[in-house]
């Protein structure tokens, strides 16, 4: 499956929590491959293991077994400098725009902190200019928000700051774990557009992690359906929605309330 247009893949990735009888296989022998510049969604209900899988890809959690290959290099066990280099290329946006902020840090600090990844490559002026650019990229006026504390911003605004952070780091792969689930539906499009913008302008590969099949279908080209730690189906979004193959996918699609199809009949 390996080819030049692949950015990351996993080989038999497994995560077991606990040990002995109480052991739970959160992620069970998962092998996936993500292409460069694609928008892909990892869809699963709570407890499916999708967040665990995402955290392993982010190298925030150690896998129990298996491998993560990023751009041809095995990154499963890298540490220190190599890990920092990895985080320059792979970044995240999380679900809860409130919890993503240290309540004691103003916006500019959240962004300036990201420069740790670049050691001391930039001067103070360069850093500031880049911070301003990234805030502008998410439609903020830098002088208006830079000194604001998180509690002075709305949920949608905070999530935009997190996207600005991604703009600043310009990762090759951005993993967005339920980035809009805590944001009002009518503000969702703004966030989604900004994320998809990153792909169009910077060529960032984006992986959404979500429980919301409607959202996943709307934003992505491909879907990975996860259930009980395993990827049960993967493929083109259109194809999965119109002709699901696996019984779980069929069930999932049938259980989501839709607008034009009957739902409660059975």
């Amino acid at each position: 499956m390996s080819s030049n247009d692949e950015i990351i893949k996993t080989e038999n990735l497994t995560k077991v929590f606990g040990s002995g009888k109480k052991a739970i296989k959160a992620v069970d022998d998962v092998s996936i491959s993500i292409k460069k510049k694609e928008v892909i969604s990892l869809v699963g209900q709570s407890g499916s293991g999708k967040t665990t899988l995402a955290r392993m890809l982010l190298r925030l959690l150690k896998p129990t077994a298996g491998k993560i290959i990023f751009e041809g290099q095995d990154v499963t066990n890298i540490e220190g400098k190599e890990k920092k280099a990895y985080w320059r290329k792979v970044q995240a946006i999380f679900q809860d725009p409130y919890a993503s902020f240290n309540i004691f840090s103003p916006v500019k600090k959240v962004l300036l902190d990201a420069f740790k990844l670049f050691d001391n490559k930039f001067t103070k002026e360069e850093k500031w200019r880049m911070v301003c650019e990234s805030l502008e990229a998410v439609n903020f006026r830098p002088d208006e928000v830079a000194d604001k504390f998180p509690f002075e911003l709305s949920g949608g605004q905070r999530q935009r700051v997190m996207i600005a952070r991604a703009h600043l780091i310009k990762p090759e792969l951005l993993i967005a774990d339920e980035p809009t689930s805590m944001i009002d539906a009518n503000l969702r499009s703004g966030i989604l557009e900004l994320l998809l913008d990153l792909r169009d302008t910077e060529g960032t590969t984006i992986m959404f992690v979500t429980h919301d099949l409607g959202l996943a279908y709307y934003v992505s080209e491909r879907l990975l359906i996860m259930h009980e730690g395993k990827i049960v189906e993967e493929g083109e979004a259109d194809k999965i929605i119109s002709e699901p193959d696996h019984p779980y996918t069929k069930q999932l699609i049938a259980d989501v309330p839709k607008l034009s199809e009957e739902w409660l009949l059975e």
Binding site: S154, G156, A185, N186, L187, R188, S189, G190, L192, E193, D212, L213, G214, L215, A216, Y217, Y218, A237, D238, I241, S242, I253, V256, P257, K258, L259, S260, E261
Partner: peptide, 25 residues
């Protein structure tokens, strides 16, 4: 109108749909 337009369901046809984006809060 904005609320209804923001509905996303897994139904063929929603892909091209334009989502509303309300200004302010």
């Amino acid at each position: 109108q904005a609320l209804m337009q923001s509905i996303l369901v897994p139904e063929v046809g929603i892909k091209g749909k334009k989502l509303p984006s309300l200004p302010g809060s």
